[in-house]
């Protein structure tokens, strides 16, 4: 029985990792109606910025805030410089740009910081730990929930959040009511990059920082976001936790470790087949 409990708690911890990146995916989807394949690499790169700051002697929390800010600016820049030119291009062209971004960020990070793994500090006091979870695992889960709450409040209760949702959903009408759609998209990229940076800094102490840190996680984050509903932040977090726990329990007791990765893939295909909008997402109906 203890074995099951241990696996569930370890699953919640890894699930929290998936959830935090899934939030960034949901964020960019809310703002642009696109799924960004380079989201994980952007988060990884931001984490290296944080690592450099901490190593240069900046305290953890100042470095944390500075990194979120830098990530935001870089996100806006990427949208303006790289994404804007393909704004009206077919979806496939955009996907190619995303994949290009992924490869470029990965290689540049390896070139600058090398491929050797680096340890990344955790800011949480030992008191936060519970019997079967490390202080960092508990802290990272809490941070994910805080980000979730902030996103919810932002989209639900601020005019800017409303404008962003409108710009993503119906650009033409939004423009007619005076929303600057172009800037809303850039802002969406900035926010997604900032959320990703937080995810990266929470993930790195657990999996160690290296240029390929996010590549495996991204797949699980997709599964998490789809399961919860790609337009629902709350759904993404629930999805992440469910994927983490399910994967551990099935891997340890049912199908074996070899098939763990398959769980994520089956979930992606299954959700798309049975309930494309996920468990918490809104069903899109468009009038033709």
């Amino acid at each position: 029985m203890e074995a099951v409990l241990l696996q569930v708690l370890a699953g919640l911890a890894t699930g929290g990792i998936y959830a935090s990146l899934a939030l960034a995916l949901v964020m960019i989807y809310q703002a642009t109606h696109l799924v960004n394949f380079a989201q994980g690499e952007m988060a990884m790169f931001a984490t290296y910025i944080a690592w450099s700051l901490v190593n240069a002697g900046v305290g953890y929390w100042p470095a944390f805030l500075l990194t979120v800010l830098i990530a935001f600016v870089l996100g806006v820049l990427i949208e303006r410089v790289v994404i804007r030119p393909v704004e009206n291009a077919p979806v496939l062209a955009v996907v190619v740009v995303f994949i290009g971004l992924l490869v470029i960020l990965n290689s540049v990070a390896g070139w600058i910081f090398t491929y050797t793994i680096k340890s990344f500090p955790s800011p949480f006091p030992p008191a936060l730990g519970i019997r079967y979870m490390s202080p960092h695992q508990v802290g990272a889960l809490l941070v994910t929930l805080i980000v979730l709450a902030l996103l919810y409040l932002f989209f639900r209760f601020t005019p800017l959040g409303l404008a962003m949702r409108a710009a993503a959903q119906n650009p033409v009408s939004s423009r007619l009511v005076g929303i600057r759609v172009g800037w809303m998209l850039a802002l969406g990229w900035g926010l997604a990059a900032a959320v990703g940076a937080v995810a990266g800094m929470m993930v790195a102490p657990i999996v160690y920082l290296d240029p390929n840190m996010m590549s495996g996680i991204l797949l699980y984050a997709f599964a998490a976001a789809l399961l919860g509903g790609i337009d629902s932040p709350g759904g993404a977090v629930v999805g992440g936790l469910v994927v983490g726990v399910l994967e551990n329990l099935l891997g340890a007791f049912v199908i074996g470790n070899e098939l763990k990765l398959v769980v994520a893939l089956v979930l992606i295909v299954g959700v798309l087949l049975v309930r494309p909008s996920g468990f918490f997402g809104s069903v899109q109906v468009s009038r033709v």
């Binding site: 074995a3 241990l6 696996q7 370890a10 699953g11 911890a13 890894t14 990792i17 993930v203 657990i206 999996v207 590549s215 495996g216 996680i217 797949l219 699980y220 994967e247 551990n248 891997g251 340890a252 470790n257 070899e258 763990k260 990765l261």
Partner: peptide
């Protein structure tokens, strides 16, 4: 217990 290089952590395997 085995793991794939794409897995984020091996925590679950160590517990097993």
């Amino acid at each position: 217990a085995s793991y794939e290089v794409s897995e984020p952590t091996v925590d679950s395997q160590i517990l097993q």
